[in-house]
Design a protein around this nucleic acid. Structure first.
Lengths: 229, 229
DNA sequence: CGATCACTTGATAATCCTCAATCCTTGTGG
DNA sequence: CCACAAGGATTGAGGATTATCAAGTGATCG
């Protein structure tokens, strides 16, 4: 393990990550070959059309995965946190990144080189299976998302996003996304997001303190999310 | 091979499908274990929340893959044709179908049982790799689609869809989707789709004959698709 | 402690959906 | 082979939703 780098063996989120499929020797392999660094808030980890050199694993912090949409608007595809991996698709699909990853808070992120990744993939069936399951889950998520953007009104989409983000930000105790990021996560503009959020506050569904949103009534939000089904 | 069933060895689309990675013995395995049948136009092949028993391979015909959206509207996730496989995600992800597949014309479809599928997956690395690439490509496609539905106007989305469908319907010589299906493919309603299509006809970008649409000026459509980027 | 970034609000306007009525196409049964 | 039923396509009017623009106020950070 290189100096100043967190070891995979001691990674708090390991049990909940794909690397839970790896044995000690394999984790050692990863620890020795990876290189980690701290990204400041707002710093890009990789960008659309870059060529991949490995997969990234988030040790701590929060990252938004984005795609550039029409008229330069960025669409947030998903929010990734500690224990999540990024950039596997470009490697597996043998192409370039088709999205960018940018930290939304200071984050410590490890880069596991492609050779190590493919070695694990080949030698550890459970790891391979785990990656496959992630890709399938993401595919499903993306399809669901486009269906929802197409046919659910903004109010419902924001209600749903808040429920989902509440889980992602669980350990933070509150959702701390800018209104703009929240908007681009559900496919709308910040002004609209602001209005809906302030409605939800009125309706006591959430509690807002500056930048942070706390969900008070998930069932109520869930109902709104499905109101127009 | 069971009587009345097309053999994989002679499948016209084999060279362009994932099964191009298979050798004679493997194709034989598939041919012997699969079961094929003809689905009438509009007949479902599988439906959301069904449990998967294998993967489907389209021998001939056209199939729409759909998801149920808000207020019962169906969203067409993609259009699959001859040589395309369906239903792999539910098997790989170890879950149920999260979308439905319905024929949009009479189609001959083969069901390859899960055991055969997993056998191929395990024993043929190239096949495995091919499936992985498909899943990655579909994930990318879905993410792109949600970004576009979020930020591109209907006119642009329809322009783009026509270009893409033109390839899918290449051998038919024209795009033969109902206005309603085209609408639900781009995430709008049939009336809006009809108006945009008739604009495109006015502008000589396409040629319309009854139900079928022929693209005359792909570059013009491409320009419209990217107009608001 | 100023400057930058985020948030808020209101007015206005564009886009797109809904509803309703009508017409055309296609396929089917007599 | 014709007639009619059913499904698909079309058009127009009206209205809801959501985006845009503008003009602030409040927060945060070097």
């Amino acid at each position: 393990m290189k100096p100043g780098q967190p070891s995979c063996q001691n990674c708090l989120r390991r049990s909940r990550s794909v690397f839970s499929a790896c044995n000690i020797a394999e984790l050692d392999d990863v620890s020795v070959t990876k290189s980690c660094r701290v990204y400041k808030k707002g710093e890009p980890i990789f960008e659309e059309e870059d060529a991949p050199h490995g997969i990234f694993c988030i040790f701590s912090g929060m990252v938004k995965v984005t795609k550039l949409g029409a008229s330069g608007k960025e669409h947030i595809v998903r929010i990734a946190g500690s224990g999540d991996v990024l950039g596997y698709r470009a490697l597996l699909g043998n192409g370039r990144y088709k999205s960018s990853a940018v930290t939304i808070e200071e984050s410590r992120v490890c880069l596991i080189p492609r050779e190590t990744f493919f070695r694990l993939l080949k030698e550890n069936i459970k790891f391979h299976d785990g990656i496959m399951k992630i890709v399938c889950a993401m595919m499903e998520q993306a399809e669901t998302k486009s269906t929802e953007i197409a046919y659910k009104p903004v109010r419902s989409r924001i209600a749903e996003a808040l429920i989902m983000l509440d889980r992602v930000f669980e350990e933070r105790g509150a959702i701390t996304l800018t209104r703009e990021d929240l908007a681009s996560f559900v496919g709308t503009v910040k002004e609209t997001a602001i209005r809906v959020i302030s409605d939800f506050k009125e309706e006591q569904l959430i509690e807002v303190d500056k930048r942070s949103i706390r969900v008070l009534n998930p069932d109520g939000l869930m109902r709104i999310s499905n109101l127009y089904d």
